[in-house]
């Protein structure tokens, strides 16, 4: 499925009084990077910014997110217009440092969850303690049996990265919860 046709295109919530709302995030380049932690400095040089070393850490710069989600695994998000340059930089790195950089841009969509009740809305269907996440923390986890990556970008702003085929389910799930919060039930 192409990114221009994913299930959440054009969706929005009309809930002006809800203490948390959701919206689809504008399209971006996404990569899954596997590389030995010993070579993290070289990978950071190719990426153009420091890649976090500890699982759960999220490094953000304008338009970019880089999260360490496994012992040798990073999830990278960048503006679409930077995709070619990033691929070229890692391609050059491949000659001396073995790694895998996979374009997963068309696999996922992003959903932003914003507002004072954002953590509570997510907690309704995530088993681990969402409120205990630090700012700039990212974790792979499960939301209502759907695998996602959850980013906490600010106190009241989260981002979910979810596969296309699950995104409709996650959207309606969260929309229903936002509506319950709006109504105070």
């Amino acid at each position: 499925m192409r990114q221009e046709e994913h299930p959440l295109i054009g969706r929005s919530l009309d809930m002006p009084h809800a203490p948390a709302t959701i919206r689809p995030v504008e399209d971006a380049a996404r990569f899954n990077l596997r590389i030995s932690p010993d070579n993290l400095a070289e990978a950071s040089a190719a990426w153009g910014a420091i890649l976090p070393a500890r699982i759960g850490e999220l490094a953000s710069s304008p338009g970019r997110l880089a999260a360490c989600i496994g012992p040798d695994e990073w999830f990278l998000i960048a503006p679409l217009e930077e995709q070619g340059a990033i691929e070229a930089a890692f391609s050059a790195l491949y000659a001396k440092t073995i790694h895998s950089l996979v374009d997963v841009g068309h696999r996922e969509v992003g959903i932003a969850i914003e507002g004072p009740a954002a953590a509570d809305v997510l907690q309704s269907c995530i088993a681990f303690e969402v409120g205990a996440m630090a700012m700039n923390e990212a974790r792979r986890t499960i939301i209502d049996r759907v695998p996602i990556i959850l980013f906490r970008e600010a106190q009241e702003r989260f981002r979910i990265e979810v596969w296309h085929s699950f995104s409709d389910h996650v959207w309606h799930l969260l929309a229903g919860i936002c509506r319950e919060y709006e109504l105070g039930v």
Binding site: I55, G56, G70, P71, A127, F128, R139, T141, I142
Partner: peptide
């Protein structure tokens, strides 16, 4: 819920993740 400590994440997580 059963909580399990992952020594790689150094975090305690619910059983459904394992």
């Amino acid at each position: 819920m059963l909580l399990i400590h992952c020594p790689y994440c150094d975090a305690t997580r619910p059983e459904v993740e394992f």
